[in-house]
Amino acid sequence: MKKVYCEVSKCVGCKSCEIACAVEHSKSKTLFIAISEEPMPVHRRNVQSINKLIISDACHHCQEAPCVSACMSGAMYKDKDGSTQHDEEKCVGCWMCIMACPFGTISRRKKLAIKCDLCKDNVKGPMCVISCPTKALSLKDVQRGEL
């Protein structure tokens, strides 16, 4: 399985990834129109910092995903490729996933939980990676041991 890694030393906190993510998950998929959509598209990646350390963080697609265990409606699931995906049709907005995510990477839009889906519907792959001007973000294979 692949996920998006952030090389902290290269991240300058420009937030290009946040914008690319929000636009990719908008209806129109263009920035100019997306900003006037209702509800506003939400970015699933967040640029955060502490002291001089800057990191762009999003769902880690955990091997043993706490959000999947916590989801009482079956909306959050592990996909065949190992990624953690969310079926918005099934979400009831109970926020059990938010309570469970140790990275705080799930947010709310109206009654729906919102998280990184690795841009699974876009053949180009995660738009945050494409948008990153310093190449801090990259899509790489995950090396995790057996459970």
Binding site: P102, G104, R144
Partner: peptide, 19 residues
């Protein structure tokens, strides 16, 4: 947010065992 606990994770590696 999560970034704020990064120093704590570094200091307590044995507690944060998940890959």
């Amino acid at each position: 947010n999560f970034a704020k606990i990064l120093p704590l994770i570094s200091e307590n590696r044995k507690n944060f065992t998940e890959p």
